[in-house]
């Protein structure tokens, strides 16, 4: 009986665990899932070891949902292992799909990050200045830990991904819908994003007008009008470049979109596209005035690449070689 059930695997690489929580957020639907599927690997919730996965036959798992970006050698090794063991590999969440928030690390070198994390933060107590090494010797034994990579990568940089389900995290309904589609065998072309091709603006019910802003504001500086487009009100909203699927969850509660569902269909660089859409709201024939208004956006690269720096054209800051 049980061998007719769908064999599921779930894994987190470099992520926060929010996607795993989103899977649990499908609530009582998880019981339906348990009826049609057996979970064979889910480190955050159940006790499995990597060797259990290694012992599986290739293609043993029907579907594997992998969330989190690739940050270190462990992430890559397990991603490759799960790719071999899975018939269908789904990149779950924005980190796996596009690099996610942790992709912002690509503005710094690995050395800068390790220095800050292990030596410079206020709460760090590390008088000997020890930075963890991939291999170290303790009492005559060699200890190995995963090697932190130079940069943050998205999952499909290293393995073939069959489907993408972005979101930070993806809404539970979307995960439930994806599982339904898998059970029913109604999946689209491999390589597809399991979300609508439209943009967040399409799902956002606010009234959009021919806009001109003479001041950019940050969300805490005003209580926005609930009917009007947030861009029209001088807020930096990434809706025009961001994929729909969330039901405009943020703009519905008066917060601008920050782009967590990744680029809309046909957008090759979400940050550049969103920046373009936002910058032109400040268009004026007075160039000096326009410059003043636009420079009110203090951190454009960090703002517009908040969820997708490793997926952008340049993938991160271009580092000068060490002097």
């Amino acid at each position: 009986m049980s061998d007719k059930k769908l064999k599921l695997g779930l894994y987190w690489a470099a992520g926060c665990g929010g996607c795993d929580v989103a899977v649990l957020d499908i609530d009582e639907k998880i019981l339906d899932v348990a009826e049609v599927a057996d979970i064979h690997f889910w480190p955050i919730a159940m006790d499995f070891k990597y060797k259990d996965v290694a012992a599986m036959d290739d293609g043993f798992l029907d579907v594997c949902f992998l969330n989190g970006a690739i940050r270190n050698s462990e992430n890559k090794e397990v991603a490759e292992l799960l790719r071999a063991k899975s018939k269908v590999l789904v990149a779950l969440g924005t980190c796996a799909c596009y690099g996610g928030v942790i992709g912002l690390a690509n503005f710094c070198t690995r050395e800068e990050i390790l220095e800050t994390a292990f030596k410079k933060t206020v709460s760090t107590d590390n008088p000997e200045g020890i930075i963890p090494q991939p291999v170290s010797e303790v009492d005559g034994c060699e200890l190995h830990i995963p090697e932190v990579y130079e940069a943050v990568y998205k999952l499909d940089d290293f393995v073939n991904v069959d489907y993408y389900l972005p979101g930070c995290p993806p809404r539970a309904e979307l995960i439930a819908k994806a599982i339904d589609a898998i059970v029913a065998g109604q999946l689209p072309e491999p390589g597809s994003v399991l979300l609508p091709a439209k943009t967040v603006c399409d799902e956002c019910k606010r009234e959009k007008k021919d806009r001109h802003v003479d001041e950019f504001k940050r969300p805490w500086e005003l209580i926005p009008d609930e009917e009007k487009c947030l861009l029209d009100q001088g807020l930096v909203c990434m809706g025009p470049a961001t994929r729909a699927g969330c039901g405009a969850a943020c703009t519905n509660v008066n917060m601008p979109c920050r782009g967590c569902y990744g680029p809309a269909e046909g957008v090759i660089d979400q940050g550049a596209k969103a920046m373009s859409a936002v910058a032109v709201t400040a268009v004026s024939t007075n160039l000096a005035e326009m410059e003043k208004v636009i420079s009110q956006v203090k951190d454009p690269a960090g703002t517009f690449y908040m969820y997708g720096l490793p997926n952008s054209l340049l993938r991160g800051r271009q580092m000068k070689e060490a002097k």
């Binding site: 940050g271 910058a279 268009v283 004026s284 024939t285 160039l287």
Partner: peptide, 23 residues
């Protein structure tokens, strides 16, 4: 009419962005 102004707007923001990206 205003295409060049639009490019100017993008240019102002793009310059900051390129600098942040190490260019």
């Amino acid at each position: 009419i205003e295409g060049n102004y639009k490019m100017w707007a993008r240019k102002v923001m793009l310059e900051t962005m390129l600098q942040q990206l190490g260019i």
